[in-house]
Design a protein around this nucleic acid. Structure first.
Lengths: 346, 346
DNA sequence: TGACGGAATTGGAACGTTCCAATTATGAAA
DNA sequence: TTTCATAATTGGAACGTTCCAATTCCGTCA
């Protein structure tokens, strides 16, 4: 019961035209007569023809495939990024190869190679930790458009779309200072990443701007996950001079920090101010709703995809470095004024 | 500066052999002499050759691509499912097309069609709400192996891998009954889905088994999301005869229920027992840690992928319906004995 | 009637690989 | 030396499409 593949030739036969005409119909060419177009379409339906995009790609040496490789799909930030990308590539008639590297450089190398072999027209990459410009060199030399998201790589000559981490962190810390906090920690994230670096610098610069002391003890790294947040806040609360507020590396860490606070019978928002980063979808519905720096992961995915498609269409465009603006979304987790809070506790 | 594509012919030239020999080398054939193999490999490296899998697929009429279509990638259950699939297909040398339908039947139709055109060797589908057997018919007729996950479709002659929702729900409710709860609600989920049906039936059957009354008022549907959980628990707490415990449709709903409880100054676990379903990755680290029916989404993705690969290898296997076993993971969110709890409150 | 021009259609080559059958090289046995 | 088997290599056809140049069709105009 093996199905013979139906090809343009079969259609041509059935419709009594040549394969070239069928091809024209498939491409929606205006050169073909209305009547024959109808005949051909009827034959296509009758025989259950399915277009072989692979064969077409081979002939035209271009494909309608883009690749997206992310470093951690279990992190909902990246999952949302992927759906943003998916939405725009789908409506442009493309389909996406998605691969998850789990932060493994080796796996990243493999999947990128595999995607090249499959002839993707472009690639959106959120690089694994430790990726270097050299890792991407063969890819960019081949002339395939690449858009880096979330994490930039120094020296890589490709477009990038990262959010303004420095400005976002500053805004968050300024907000905490305005509310009267004196001891503000920076919690979570791997210290050897560019994103950590940028957010942490924003944190420091806001403190310095306000003439406040910067203490390294207040900067506590961890895995950028919920579990990491728990351990980071535990460590912070061991300090002699405990913080009363924290800017967290990302929302996952922030949720973990909330968990850790509750485990010590402290209510996030009321007893300790926490601010996240990213504005993942759960931030709004959590209790307390998370104050966070909004990065809009889906929107970012969309913009990255649009940029990539533009470059694909243009043949090869100059690398663009876009830094996406970012805004502080104030919800409940950062509490009210510190003074008011003190009263409530007294 | 347009790059000419390097082909097997170029390699053959450079290495002083024929294209057939190069092809043999690429396929790792044992027919080729060690020395020539080395020469060819050197040429491949020197010229920066990249294999054109599309051309190979065309000739062999089989591809190393599988498709995975999910109904909601922003739900971390499905994101994890996708990484499970990804892990096994990657190590089998396949790559995955991933598409998100967002529960839209129309989009699902489009992406499935697109995947067929791209010649996927198999498909893993978590169908959108309302998908019918007829929607899949053309696909299965074409002989492409399909594995349905999470949601089964009556009458579709394809393999499926769903978890034992009925047994899981029963186990959870039995556990609550053992702990002394008398009024147990079932919260969240869309009532018109098969998964809802199965879990709700498990809930009812456990109550009946214990000789306890079943009240429709205690069964409250909602969107299967965190926000839905909040509204469902609000509604439940309006009841004259308030529940003291709930089995939730899934973990997202359960988190929402916890949020809603806290908004009313009730502590999940201590004041109200909540049990989730799925065991997503955050369930373990949340505070309180969520008692839940473990479905192991990554493991499920892996099993689905393995089943699919098996069928691809076998040409065409008989449809198998696997129901994955499921176990109750008791953590903190369902509290201790009700008696003890009452003492603590008194 | 013949020439012309635009619209519609067509055959064949090409894309980069694999597969098959055929060929050549190598060495051992007669 | 010839013969044979085995190992290694090879040319050409094929996969299903698109593209190009060429051809046919048909109505109009001189």
């Amino acid at each position: 019961m093996v199905k013979e593949r139906v090809t343009v030739i079969d259609i041509a036969h059935a419709a009594g035209v040549s394969k070239s005409t069928v091809s024209l119909v498939l491409q929606g060419s205006s050169l073909v007569n209305e009547a024959t177009r109808a005949k051909v379409n009827a034959a296509i339906r009758d025989l259950g023809y399915v277009y072989n995009r692979g064969a077409a790609n081979l002939r035209q040496s271009r494909s309608k495939i883009i690749g997206i490789v992310v470093n951690d799909l279990t992190n909902s930030f990246f999952a949302e990024l992927a759906v943003g990308v998916d939405a725009v590539v789908q409506s442009a008639g493309f389909v996406q190869f998605l691969a998850n590297t789990g932060e493994k450089i080796e796996r990243q190398r493999e999947v990128v190679a595999s995607m090249r072999e499959h002839g993707v027209s472009g690639l959106i990459v959120s690089p694994a930790r430790g990726t270097e410009a050299a890792d991407l060199a063969p890819l960019v030399e081949s002339g395939i458009p690449v858009v880096l998201v979330v994490r930039d790589i120094a020296g890589a000559e490709v477009s990038s779309l990262i959010s303004d981490n420095h400005a976002g962190a500053m805004a968050a810390v300024r907000h905490l200072i305005e509310r009267g906090h004196q001891r503000i920690a920076f919690l979570g994230g791997f210290p050897d990443t560019a994103v950590f670096e940028a957010r942490m610098r924003g944190y420091r610069d806001a403190l310095i701007e306000a003439g406040m002391p910067v203490s390294d003890a207040m900067i506590i790294g961890s895995a950028p996950s919920r579990a990491g947040g728990v351990t980071a806040v535990e460590q912070a609360m061991m300090l002699a001079d405990r913080p009363t507020a924290a800017l967290c590396f990302n929302d996952a860490v922030a949720f973990g920090v909330c968990d850790g606070l509750r485990a010590r019978r402290l209510e996030p928002g009321a007893d300790f101010a926490v601010i996240g980063f990213d504005d993942v979808i759960e931030a709004k519905t959590a209790v307390p709703a998370l104050t966070t720096v909004s990065v809009d992961p889906q929107g970012m995915g969309q913009r990255a995809a649009e940029l990539l498609l533009k470059q694909i269409k243009a043949g090869k465009a100059e690398p663009e470095a876009i830094v996406g603006s970012v805004r502080l979304v104030v919800r409940q987790s950062c509490g009210g004024q510190v003074e008011r809070k003190r009263e409530a506790l007294a």
